[in-house]
Write a protein that binds this DNA or RNA. Structure first.
Length: 595
RNA sequence: GGUUCAGUAGCUCAGCUGGAUAGAGCAACGGCCUUCUAAGCCGUAGGUCGUGGGUUCGAAUCCCGCCUGGAUCACCA
């Protein structure tokens, strides 16, 4: 039984006894005592004052006395204004620490919730490589999935690859015209980068043609529509949709190159999927559902034949669902795929990890699904995240200010290598072992930097700062963990055993603070799950690492002469490492044993 | 204009289901390597929590107005 529950129930009992009023746990405010005050937990008594008809101080005093008498673990209390600060005995914290040490996967909930959550993330286009924005998406999607798993839910991670459309045709046309039979293998380039180059090439040619037409006196708008290369791309899209054999074969070949490239990127990033959907196979979906919606009178048809949803009653506009020619649009597809997924899987929730530029889309999606009468309409959820900006301003592919995902990851690893070598770390490691550490540190820096920020917020990615391994960064947490492992290795080497700590000596405040942080982990995992926010876990890992660093600095561990104290500190060190490992592991950040 | 998200130290971010004197890191300045990893630790300095009202014992946190910035409002995806 956790001390907070005990306190809560006893306070309720006391209020009942003294003031004859029944209050509920949620009306009670029990919080951690602020650092500047003495105590561990604080009851805010202001809300109780109105039943008691006494001053806040008197109420606090009365409750404090009661708690001290009735709860063994309560060692003492003090009252400051309306705050009752309760001091918990060291014995309690030691007991909890011992309990935690028996849990091999501390921080992960053991009981299965029985809930299944589907998470769709990444969703790349197959015409160019992944960039900085995708990195945030991928890391968020992955860590949120892991957080939900840690909360005992079953998670199905899916990726919906956008492998069709005019943008793909642009790369295809440019390749046909300018590649002269080149392939990624022959050129020695990653497939997604290879294809992306032709996408850029298309844009260059397209712009040149527009200028040429304008030079001949054509208005800009018209020139954009009539540039020969654009007409070719549109023609290619028509051929693709008609199932033209050569076009489909080329499309297949180029998509395979790109997807192979993506696989490498995903692997380097440490993410994966349970199932991959391709838009080329799903883009016609949803049509029947929409037509049924018309029959049911939920949707309406215009004279020209197109089908719409009227959302003006909800403060939104009219939304197109089927074109005049009867083909689907993006929204229609999403309705269709969602429908299919709820048919195929027993899922209790579906989360889409998509940038906030699509907030409107998802608002409309859930509204229309509700109108269509689907009972799963309220089970879909948009995990919206803000854009990633650069110090110089926005990323623009046309202006060449895009930060490429592969390049960035490599740059981070290179910097980790340089820094590590400069500091003369990792002596005695083989080249291979050292490389593994550089990889963990470089990627850890990137991942932590991205995940520590509240997903909803637009974030600024400063490449230089992320490579600076000081402060609130992944490498700092990793470094702390490496030191913890080092201490534990040395303990083993010198034959020190680590048994349960049943010391009766009082432990210091610093040590108690550290235990309290360790104890908090499961609550943080739960909260992160409720809020779909890895940021909480990242900041928790940092807080714990920082607290450990102070402890490490102030107290001797291995050199402590008193066996009981040394063993206690070793156990504390070990569990601190476990807590950090769990938190970082859930975020998808690996921890090196040395660095 | 409609919808929506945000605005906290010079910079990047925590804190937001109302609670005590608003916290970190970076940058600046000053200390600490004969002692378990100095990618570290300690200290100094830095704030009208965008703004004006309201709700109450109490507001960075909740409500309303305003200001500023982002996103979005296609027979694109």
């Amino acid at each position: 039984m956790n001390i907070e529950h005990v306190l809560t129930s006893k306070v309720i009992a006391a209020v009942k006894q003294f003031y004859g009023v029944d209050i509920e746990a949620k009306d009670l405010q029990l919080q951690e005592t602020r650092k500047d005050f003495i105590g561990d937990l604080t009851v805010v008594v202001f809300p109780i004052t109105r039943y008691a008809k006494k001053s806040p101080e008197a109420v606090a005093e009365q409750l404090g006395e009661y708690l001290k008498r009735h709860i063994e673990e309560v060692r003492g209390y003090n009252v400051v204004k309306g705050f009752l600060n309760i001091e918990i005995s060291s014995a309690y914290w030691l007991k909890v620490l011992n309990e935690i040490s028996e849990d091999p996967k501390y921080g992960y909930l053991k009981e299965k919730s029985g809930r299944t959550i589907m998470i769709e993330y990444s969703s790349p286009n197959t015409n160019k490589p992944l960039h900085l924005g995708h990195i945030r998406n991928n890391l968020l999607g992955w860590s949120v999935s892991e957080i939900q798993k840690a909360n005992g839910h079953k998670v199905i991670m899916v990726n919906l690859v956008n492998d069709r459309g005019i943008h793909i045709c642009k790369s295809m046309i440019a390749w046909q015209k300018f590649a002269d039979g080149a392939t990624p293998e022959r050129v020695g380039k990653k497939g997604d980068h290879f294809v992306g180059d032709y996408y850029v090439r298309f844009d260059k040619e397209y712009k040149a043609e527009i200028q040429e037409l304008i030079g001949k006196g054509m208005p800009e708008e018209e020139a954009k529509k009539n540039a020969p290369i654009m007409l070719e791309a549109q023609e290619m899209l028509r051929k693709w949709e008609a199932g033209d054999t050569d076009t489909v074969a080329l499309w297949q070949k180029m998509n395979d190159w790109v997807l192979k490239g993506f696989e490498e990127t995903y692997e380097q990033m440490g993410i994966s999927f349970d199932k991959i959907y391709f838009e080329s196979q799903t883009y016609k979906k949803g049509r029947d559902i929409v037509l049924k919606g018309v029959a049911d009178g939920v949707l309406y048809r215009k004279e020209t034949g197109s089908i719409w949803a009227d959302l003006t009653a909800d403060g939104l506009d009219h939304k197109l669902l089927l074109r005049d020619d009867g083909t689907s649009v993006y929204m229609t597809q999403d309705i269709g795929t969602a429908y299919d997924r709820f048919q195929e899987f027993q899922i209790d929730e579906e989360i889409y990890v998509v940038g906030n530029e699509q907030n409107y889309h998802f608002q409309v999606l859930s509204l229309i699904c509700k109108k269509l009468g689907f009972d799963w309409a309220d089970k879909i959820r948009h995990l919206s995240y803000g854009m990633v900006e650069l110090p110089e301003g926005k990323m623009k592919s046309r202006e060449g200010t895009v930060v490429d995902a592969d390049d960035l990851m490599q740059e981070m690893i290179d910097t980790a290598r340089e820094t590590s070598k400069e500091l003369g770390k990792l002596e005695g490691y083989t080249e291979e072992e050292a490389e593994e550490v550089y990889r963990k540190v470089g990627l850890g820096a990137l991942k932590y930097f991205m995940l520590k920020v509240d997903p909803r917020k637009t974030m600024l990615f400063n490449p230089e700062e992320s490579i600076d391994f000081n402060g609130n960064t992944g490498p700092f947490v990793q470094y702390t963990y490496a030191r913890i492992r080092s201490v534990l290795r040395k303990a083993v080497d010198s034959g020190l055993s680590m048994y349960e700590s049943d010391i009766h000596l009082p432990i210091s405040d610093k040590e108690q603070d550290l235990i309290k942080l360790i104890v908090k982990l499961p609550a943080i995992v739960k909260e992160a799950g409720d809020q779909y926010s890895p940021a909480l876990l990242a900041n928790y890992a940092y807080d714990t690492a920082k607290e450990f660093n102070q402890f490490y600095h102030d107290f001797s561990i291995l050199k402590e002469e008193n066996d009981e104290i040394r063993n206690f500190r070793l156990l504390l060190t070990k569990q601190c490492g476990e807590a950090i490992k769990s938190a970082m592991g859930i975020l998808g950040i690996e921890l090196p044993e040395r660095m």
